[in-house]
Each structure stands twice: as C-alpha cells, then as structure tokens.
C-alpha cells in the first residue's frame, strides 16, 4: 500500500517524537510501538524501519513483534472502530450473531476496514464486561447487551454523521490482503 503525499514526513516526525521519550533500548520496543500506534493509528513499515534503526535491532525482529501481538495494526484503521467482544459470555449470548450483523451491514469481514476508511471491524478476546454480554466497543464506548437491532441503531448514528455535507469522496479501496487481517 502506497503512502499519500506528505505522509512519510508525518510518520518520520511522529516516530522521532515518540523515540525521544524513551531510552533507545530493545526493552522499550513494545512501549515505542504502542506510542507510535497511538499517534498514527497503525504501524507503517517506514515507522518500524525507523524504530529498528534507532534501537539497533534487525528490522525483521520489529516486524515479528508487531505481527505477534493482537493490538498492533499493519494497516490504517477506519475512522470509527467496532470491536465485537468474543469472550465466552459474549459468544454464548450471541457475539457471533452480532459480528455477522456488522459484517453484513458494513460488507466487510472481521479484521477489515471499509474501502472509504470510515469503519473497521475487529474482534476482541474479552473486554471484561461479561455480565453485560454481548458487548461491542464502539470507538471507546462499551455498548452492553447488544442485539442485531442495536447494531442497526449504532450504524444509524454514524450514518447520520456520514451524510454530513463535509464528507469527502471515499478514498480508493485499500488493499486488504492477508496482512490486513489481524489475527
């Protein structure tokens, strides 16, 4: 996936700012990756390369760590994220059905982002709200006891927002190959 104009400079500057906050030590790799993802929303290859150079570790090792943990994304996420909890309690009370409702409504699969980069759909192992299952984390808000009808309600809320006049044309579809899937 190619970067847009000016994106590389932003990545460089953000990574530099994060690196400044830490000792340049292999042990700080995970906090640094977390810091960069907070800033950029994902871990661009250019960022990982820059981190590898700064920490003097092989770049493939940074990539190995980045692809090992669930939290790290290799592709930009959507502007809004839906995380469907797939913990035991949520699964047994219909978490799968909720996931499928989102998949159907957004026409994407779990782990993917809509082509306009508005929404991304992820699964989480458990957010620790088992007593309120099934739950969905919409951006940072936990929605409790979600039914498929509530999925429609959640999307309706965003649908209004999406219809706002300042909405720009959708970007070109982004490659959601194997590496787009976060497993």
């Amino acid at each position: 996936m190619g970067l847009m104009e000016g994106e590389l400079e932003i990545i460089r500057a953000e990574v530099e700012a994060v690196l400044e906050k830490y000792d340049l030590d292999r042990e700080k790799l995970i906090p640094i990756l977390q810091g960069v993802q907070v800033k950029l929303g994902y871990l661009p290859k250019e960022a990982m390369r820059q981190i590898a150079e700064a920490l003097k570790v092989p770049e493939v090792d940074v990539y190995g760590v980045g692809t090992f943990y669930n939290q790290f994304r290799m592709n930009p996420p959507g502007k809004h994220q839906f995380k469907v909890c797939m913990g035991t309690a949520c699964h047994m009370t219909g978490g799968r059905i909720i996931m499928e409702s989102f998949e159907r409504r957004l026409s994407i699969s779990e782990g993917e982002t809509t082509p306009d980069r508005e929404f991304s759909l992820e699964r989480v192992a458990c957010v620790g709200c088992c007593a309120l299952a099934p739950v969905v984390v919409v951006d940072e808000t936990v929605e409790a006891k979600v039914r498929p009808t509530r999925v429609d309600g959640i999307l309706l809320g965003f649908g209004l927002e999406r219809a706002a006049p300042e909405k720009t044309a959708p970007d070109e579809g982004i490659d959601q190959g194997e590496e787009g899937r976060e497993q």
Partner: peptide
C-alpha cells in the same frame, strides 16, 4: 506499569518476561 499488547499467552510467566524484554510473548 507495562502495558500488554494483546496476547493471552503473556499470562504465562516466561512469555510475560519475554514481552517486557521487548520480544514476542513466547
């Protein structure tokens, strides 16, 4: 505070240590 990055296996002591040391939680 060390923030985990989403790996159940890091509950295992040796994996947790690997993770703090900056490696994959193996």
């Amino acid at each position: 505070i060390f923030k985990g990055s989403g790996a159940f296996v890091c509950g295992e002591e040796t994996a947790l240590i690997a993770s703090i040391e900056g490696h994959a939680g193996i």
